[in-house]
């Protein structure tokens, strides 16, 4: 996704200095590697805090709607547009619905779409990139040419066309819209990783003793790209979340009664003069999620790649 320019640095990763090479070639030390990484992550207090906030946010969105005393869809005009108060910590919206509950529900939608689209992006990327990188030769060349072509697709315009094709925007349409023109980068990263690893001694040895190619891919190559992929999830997430918010904002969000944070913010903008909390709550939720994702990604990068370390 191109929303975050920092991510774009990963585009030529196959040619320029690839950050994770050094850690890559040691499948024997797998368990140690992860333990080390975890220890390093825990040393990074910002990442730990971000991770904790993130977990809390997920738990809140997952659990609160079951616990909440309020029906999130119950309309009561007598309660409308209340600011934050003791009964309604986030206030109420223009239907008098409890925003604390609705924000949790909106979080489910936003995060669901966010992680859903991210996973789709990575899955396509892994499939495309690993085949291209592993098989190599003419196929690789052709697939990379094709990828170059797809790079010309403008991401948001295509997302808009996709939502129009489906007309009625649902959870899955949104996932498709957000991933259709944004998996190219992840394919490139995976291909770069796979090519580097292919030259690794273990892989060569495995090939030499006649292991099947998909075994080599599954046993040696993919586990080694896992770290990079986990980082990629959190790097990709902010862009997807913002993309969803933009589409919702220009009126292409998913259908009611579900409402994502983006849609809640869009509705809030209409009343921001009288009830500013209705735009503020979901916007701050979006911002918090993105901040957490950024810090978690930073922490993971440091943890999984000991070469780059914070001063």
């Amino acid at each position: 996704m191109v929303v975050d320019p920092t991510q774009a640095t990963r585009r030529p990763v196959d040619t320029a200095a690839a950050p994770a090479h050094e850690t890559a070639g040691a499948p024997i030390a797998q368990s140690n590697l992860w333990k080390d990484a975890w220890r390093r992550y825990l040393r990074n207090r910002a990442a730990v805090l971000a991770g904790s906030v993130f977990v809390l946010l997920v738990l809140y969105c997952a659990i609160w709607p079951f616990v909440s005393p309020y029906d999130p869809n119950e309309v009561d005009f007598a309660l409308k547009n209340q600011g934050p108060n003791l009964e309604h910590p986030f206030g109420t919206d223009n239907f008098g619905r409890d925003l604390f509950t609705r924000t949790a529900l909106g979080g489910r939608v936003s995060m669901g779409i966010g992680f859903g689209a991210t996973l789709v992006i990575l899955l396509i990327g892994v499939a495309y990139g690993s085949i291209s990188g592993f098989v190599g030769g003419k196929l690789d060349n052709g697939m990379m040419r094709f990828l170059d072509t797809l790079y010309g697709l403008p991401y948001l315009p295509f997302a808009i066309i996709v939502t129009a094709i489906f007309g009625n925007v649902t959870f899955w349409t949104m996932v498709v819209a957000l991933s259709i023109a944004s998996w190219f980068t992840s394919a490139r990263i995976v291909r770069g990783q796979v090519i580097t690893l292919k030259e690794n001694d273990y892989v060569r040895a495995a090939k030499a003793v006649g292991a099947r190619w998909f075994r080599v891919l599954a046993r040696h190559l993919l586990p080694n790209t896992l770290g990079v992929l986990i980082i990629a999830i959190f790097l990709e997430l902010p862009g997807v979340i913002l993309g969803e918010a933009i589409l919702s904002f220009i009126g292409l969000g998913i259908s009611p009664p579900d409402a994502s944070w983006g849609q809640m913010a869009q509705e809030g903008r209409l009343v921001y003069r009288v009830a500013p909390h209705i735009i503020a709550v979901p916007s701050i939720a979006i911002a918090t999620l993105i901040l957490c994702a950024n810090f978690i990604a930073d922490g993971l990068r440091d943890a999984l790649d000991p070469r780059t370390r914070e001063t």
Partner: peptide
């Protein structure tokens, strides 16, 4: 970073109050 993150959270709350 830890300070930055606390600052961020504080600012988010402050901005809400400001709005």
């Amino acid at each position: 970073r830890i300070k930055t993150l606390w600052l961020l959270l504080a600012m988010l709350v402050a901005s809400l109050a400001l709005v």
